[in-house]
């Protein structure tokens, strides 16, 4: 089942995307965590995951989005929640809003690691942006589904789509 009956899947594209996906995910995670003191951060990282989703959508069609393990709207909530709670948490221990704590840990194989609590904020942004891109794609896919259903019911062939799957929260 393809999003549009006229588009034939391209093997080259599928294989390239399949190979690129793990690299992109790795880059996204790297960009997110280097963002504390260098260019990058959760927003850029989330957008790179967004690129992965867009590529998957191009190769596998709406099916790729139906396979998403979580509802993108929930992702938005979890990400925003993580970011806001990183802001509120320091208030509970007598700090100020969004204040960051730094821990230096000795982890045996990698040596000393500096852990900052604001990394959770970046992680939240990362999840949030991923969720937003996914939610937009789901909305586009649903519109695509409707359009192709319209085409097929108008044409001579019978309907090819099954019942619309609820990947996101529709209104």
């Amino acid at each position: 089942m393809t999003p549009r009956p006229t588009v034939t899947p391209s093997t080259i594209l599928s294989l390239t995307v399949a190979g690129l996906t793990p690299v992109l995910v790795l880059v996204a995670v790297y960009i997110t965590f280097r963002g504390h003191n260098a260019p990058g951060g959760g927003f850029a990282g989330g957008l790179i995951i967004g690129i992965v989703l867009v590529l998957r959508y191009l190769t596998d069609g709406a099916e790729a989005l139906r396979r998403l393990p979580v509802d993108p709207v929930v992702l938005i909530g979890v990400g925003l929640g993580a970011a806001v709670l990183t802001g509120i948490a320091p208030l509970l221990v007598g700090g100020s809003f969004l204040e960051s704590n730094v821990w230096k840990l000795d982890l045996w194989p990698v040596g000393q690691v500096k852990v900052v609590s604001s990394a959770v904020f970046d992680l939240g942004v990362f999840i949030l942006v991923t969720g937003v891109v996914a939610a937009i794609l789901v909305a586009l896919a649903e519109a695509d589904d409707e359009a192709s259903r319209g085409e097929t019911t108008g044409g001579t062939e019978g309907p090819t789509d099954g019942p619309p799957t609820r990947t996101g929260v529709d209104r």
Binding site: V73, G77, G81, F97
Partner: peptide, 18 residues
């Protein structure tokens, strides 16, 4: 900050409870 933080936390909760 809670005048902004609390409603935003609520926003997050509402997304999770979509």
């Amino acid at each position: 900050a809670l005048f902004v933080g609390a409603p935003l936390a609520g926003t997050a909760a509402c997304f999770v409870l979509a």
